[in-house]
Design a protein around this nucleic acid. Structure first.
Lengths: 188, 188
DNA sequence: TAATTTATATACTAAACAGTATAAATTTAG
DNA sequence: CTAAATTTATACTGTTTAGTATATAAATTA
């Protein structure tokens, strides 16, 4: 639980988002974090290890944030899927949004054998599984199918918003999501 | 119209897709293309210029291919928007599909002032405008809105397919697109 | 054949890259 | 206060990076 370790993770996350992962050297990271390479390599075996931890932490933080937000604001479990896009919008339009980490990482590490690519694919899958859980709670028959559709829409919206801030893409994503949810067959 | 120039563009496009743009050095490009750096720098002022040309050519080729495909297979203009996803599927499931170039490029060049990022954003915009044209021909009232929704869905599907080949995501994207198109209000 | 363009081979610069060695300084614990 | 652990400063290795200089070889054109 070193404060310096947290600082390095935070600074690395910032720089990876603003400059790209491969364009950010460890020298830059330690300079901005106000430490040295020796310390960085005491906490992380390699730059790749640092990348993996940054991705993992970002993913967990996002999932926890989203889950808390949904749990606190939904009276009934079936409401969650309807409110999902509201919180995605909140996240995407917040000033410190800079894109979906696993999308960017998989673009920079296209090789499917790369550990970074593998972890990114895992996070994308976990995100879909999470949405499928919400769809199932709402009684949707093909919950996996709807989850896949919503995740494509959400990732596309994030892509649009990352490419041009304030594009308003998320507004239309919300409308589309509502149509898809409402027209999805339910059980019974 | 040098054959060597074309070769360099083609090889660079391949390597950018399979290894990433920033991870591909000009030394690798010339080695694979079977030429030398002197020749590369005779045709392209810098690596950035080469990247921009690769992106531009890929974008034009895709747009031309899609437009031809749609024009040849649609009896009426209103059919095009319905068949759009069929040809996107054909493209995405073809063996040499390796992701949407402008999505990957914008991830590697996140700085909005970067020429590569700017060109990527332009291509994304042109793609949306093209779809909006199809929607307008089909008599959709909010053609821009539907185009934005479909482009988000398509880019999300490509993202899913790029991350894991054969994911079948495009099948569900097609279903979602049909629902969105059919439920979009038309003029008159 | 002679002149001109085009491509090659090779070697180079200067910077950035990931990662390491060594030793001094600082902080923490007993 | 002393001993141990942590952090820092600095300098280094060896590789890769984009881009250039020079001179030779090959192909094209006149």
């Amino acid at each position: 639980m070193s404060a310096l370790r947290e600082k390095i993770l935070h600074v690395a996350s910032d720089l990876f988002h603003s400059r790209g992962i491969n364009s950010t050297g460890v020298d830059t990271i330690v300079a901005v974090a106000g430490t040295t390479k020796m310390t960085l390599y005491k906490y992380f075996r390699s730059k790749e290890d640092l990348i993996l931890e940054v991705l993992q932490k970002g993913h967990e933080d996002f999932q926890v944030w989203l889950n808390e937000r949904l749990s606190l604001n939904s009276k009934q479990p079936a409401d969650k899927i309807q409110k999902l896009l509201d919180f995605i919008e909140e996240w995407v339009t917040s000033p410190d949004f800079r894109g979906m980490a696993f999308i960017k990482a998989s673009a920079e590490f296209p090789n499917e054998e790369s550990p970074v690519h593998k972890l990114s694919a895992e996070h994308a899958k976990e995100f879909r599984i999470y949405i499928a859980g919400l769809a199932k709670e709402a009684g949707i028959s093909d919950s996996d199918g709807l989850a896949l559709q919503l995740s494509m829409l959400i990732e596309g919206a994030m892509q649009a918003e990352q490419m041009k801030r304030g594009s308003g893409a998320i507004k239309y994503a919300k409308k589309a999501a509502k149509i898809l949810i409402d027209s999805a067959p339910k059980k019974h």
